[in-house]
Amino acid sequence: MKHQKDKIVKYLKIQSRTENLSKVRKFVSDAAKKFGFDEDEINHIALAVDEACTNIIRHAYENQGDKIIEIHLLTSNNSFEVRIIDYGKPFEPEKIRKPDLKHHLERYNKGGLGMFLMRSLMDKVEYQINKNNHNEVRLIKKLNK
């Protein structure tokens, strides 16, 4: 019989500074562990969320450290979802394609690497840009057990 997990919602609000990334990783890792993911999966989720927050700090907020990033965790059945919300500059993910490493070595672009990592590490990455004056990234991973 498949064990049904209760839907839990957790929330973390941080200021848009890179020094807070470790706090975000711990918050997400603890929840992912509790949900039942193995160590590799926990590392992957934490990295994907770090990349999303780093992109927000650097691009949406252009390194202004006094802005807000909200991180919501939602779980249901086997789905673990991290919603990351910012109120900065809208971001256009379709402009970023899979990084071509040869090309990267010629034209150094770190933003694309983070995006590519997020898509590789998670089952689903969705963007909702400029929705009611905020941007939202949804990172979803399924628990296969």
């Binding site: 990334l21 990783r25 990295l47 770090d50 990349e51 780093t54 990267h104 070595l105 010629e106 150094y108 770190k110 690497l113 983070g114 990592l117």
Partner: peptide, 16 residues
Amino acid sequence: SYISSAGLGVFMAYIE
């Protein structure tokens, strides 16, 4: 213990 793309970017920035 950990590396994100920001760290990987440093390797990329200097290899050439």
